[in-house]
């Protein structure tokens, strides 16, 4: 049995004017970390709200842990943990009070499932008497994760848990998720950060309410059929202009310190290109073939 099945879900806002989800289908296997990767406005949060029974889809079918999100709404609410993108705990209650509150409404105690949150909670325990509203961003995320975990959910929904969190905390956060996976919890996590995609077991790339592809991170990279080159020179701005006007160029994106370029013909003459760039006044030209990242795949799939 899959942890989550989504079949052809459609969702519109403003009486059909705004399409949020456009026939989305995918499934999440039990005990895996499934990443929903896409830019802001792709429809990630709408999908989360549908799966956590907060929103009714216009059409389509979805089930979580075998329960229909519409018909078995109440059962789902007992067995899922949801951490919304926006911090939604009681700001005027302390760390400990928030945790206790969420434990008791799920008819459990902090003690009973302490092993699940221990690794995370020890980091915020020194601040357990501090009000949740007064915590730093990373601490808030950790507390929210603890509160979403305290009832030992079967499926955990994390809506952009690392947005606005510093790189170190992000790394920590993902290592916690890997540990939770070991406990048998299935996790659906969304993120706008492509670099986090590699940390998932399976990912779906989503844009404008459409799923572009569903695969493992490696599978997605392998399905990238073209040759990808990284090109650098001393004058990057001029290099973009030159490469974009080059007739053999298919796509050219600025990518950190270099440009990622694909060509219409895979057998492009790199020597020729090098000379052409030299004659345009570029120095220290470096052209290397590279393996594509998830982001390259996303950009390629986008259109």
């Amino acid at each position: 049995m899959n942890a989550i099945n989504v079949e052809n879900i459609t969702m519109t806002y403003n009486k059909g004017k705004v399409k949020a989800l456009n026939g989305v289908s995918f499934s999440v296997k039990k005990g895996e970390i499934f990443g929903l990767i896409g830019p802001d406005g792709a429809g990630k949060t709408s999908l989360f709200r549908i799966l956590t029974t907060l929103l009714l889809a216009d059409s389509g079918y979805a089930e979580v842990a075998g329960f229909d999100v519409v018909r078995d709404m109440k059962s789902i609410r007992k067995i899922v943990g949801y951490m919304p993108g926006k911090f939604s705990l009681y700001q005027d209650l302390t760390v400990e009070e928030n945790l206790k509150f969420f434990a008791t409404i799920f008819k459990t105690t902090v003690k009973e499932n302490y092993h699940l949150i221990k690794e995370i909670y020890v980091q915020i325990e020194p601040f357990k008497d501090r009000r949740a509203g007064k915590l730093s961003g990373g601490m808030k995320q950790k507390l929210a994760l603890c509160c979403a975990l305290i009832h030992k959910p079967e499926v955990l929904f994390l809506d952009e848990p690392t947005t606005g969190v510093d790189p170190v905390s992000r790394k920590e956060f993902w290592s916690m998720l890997r540990n939770l996976k070991k406990e048998g919890i299935s996790i659906l996590v969304s993120t706008p950060y492509m670099d986090e995609a590699n940390l998932c077991d399976n990912i779906a790339l989503i844009k404008d309410g459409n799923i572009l592809t569903v695969n493992t991170p490696n599978g997605i990279v392998e399905s990238y059929k073209e040759k990808l080159y990284s090109i650098k020179s001393q004058n990057m701005y001029q290099l973009i202009l030159d490469l974009r006007s080059y007739e053999e160029t298919k796509k050219c994106f600025a990518f950190g310190e270099s440009l990622h370029v694909t060509f219409k013909n895979d057998l492009v003459d790199l020597e020729l290109l090098n000379n052409k760039l030299k004659s345009n006044g570029h120095e220290n030209i470096e052209i290397t073939e590279i393996t594509p990242s998830i982001e390259d795949c996303f950009l390629a799939l986008e259109d």
Binding site: T52, T53, L54, K74, R77, K78, V80, Y82, P84, K86, F87, S88, L89, Y90, Q91, F102, I105, F106, K107
Partner: peptide
């Protein structure tokens, strides 16, 4: 407004 209502909605309450 704060979003706690939504958080509570995803509980058995």
């Amino acid at each position: 407004e704060i979003g706690t209502m939504e958080q509570i909605n995803v509980t058995p309450i």
